Amino acid sequence: KELVLVLYDYQEKSPRELTVKKGDILTLLNSTNKDWWKIEVNGRQGFVPAAYLKKL
C-alpha cells in the first residue's frame, strides 16, 4: 500500500471527494490523474486534489 501525507485541509465539494485534515496519513488508491488522487479515509473512497497530498 502506498501512503500519502495531507499537506493542507481540504473540504469536500462533491460526493466524489473526501474531506481531509493537514497531517493525516492516508492510503493512496490511484494517482494516475495528475490533478486528482483517489484515497481512502475511514473506509470511504474518494478524490482529493493532488496538490494537497505528498507521497510517503
Rank of each mutant, 00 (worst) to 15 (best):
K13I: 08
V41I: 12
T19H: 08
G43H: 12
F47G: 02
L29M: 09
E17S: 08
L3A: 07
L28N: 01
F47N: 04
S31M: 09
P15Q: 10
D24H: 06
D35P: 02
Y52C: 09
L28Y: 02
N33G: 11
I25Q: 04
L29P: 00
N33Y: 08
L53F: 04
D9K: 02
E17A: 07
F47E: 05
T27H: 15
I25K: 05
N33C: 09
Q45W: 11
K55T: 08
K34R: 09
L29W: 05
L5I: 15
E40H: 05
D35H: 12
R16G: 15
L56C: 09
I39S: 03
W36N: 03
L29D: 02
L3Q: 12
K1A: 13
K22A: 14
E12L: 13
D9L: 02
G43E: 09
R16Q: 14
L29I: 15
G46Y: 06
Q45M: 12
Y10R: 03
K1N: 13
L3T: 10
D35C: 09
N30G: 08
K38T: 09
L26T: 07
Y10D: 00
K1T: 14
L28V: 07
P15F: 10
L7S: 02
E40Q: 08
R44F: 08
L29Q: 04
K38I: 14
W36Q: 03
L18C: 10
K22Q: 13
Q11V: 13
G43Q: 07
L5V: 13
A50L: 02
A50D: 02
L7D: 01
I25L: 08
K55H: 08
Y8P: 00
L29E: 03
S31T: 11
W37G: 01
P49Y: 02
R44G: 05
E40P: 00
P15A: 11
Q11M: 13
P49N: 03
K21G: 06
S31R: 06
E40M: 08
P49W: 02
Q11H: 14
T32H: 13
G23A: 03
K38W: 14
P49V: 02
V6A: 07
K22H: 07
K54P: 00
V48A: 05
K13R: 14
V41D: 15
K21W: 13
D24L: 08
K54V: 14
I25S: 02
T19C: 06
A50F: 02
G43A: 07
L29H: 07
V4M: 02
K21I: 08
W36P: 01
G43T: 05
K13F: 06
W37F: 05
A50S: 14
P49I: 02
W36Y: 11
A51W: 10
L29G: 02
Q45A: 14
L29R: 04
L53S: 00
K22V: 07
G23F: 03
K21P: 01
K34H: 12
L28R: 01
Y8E: 13
D9R: 02
K34F: 08
R44T: 10
T19Q: 05
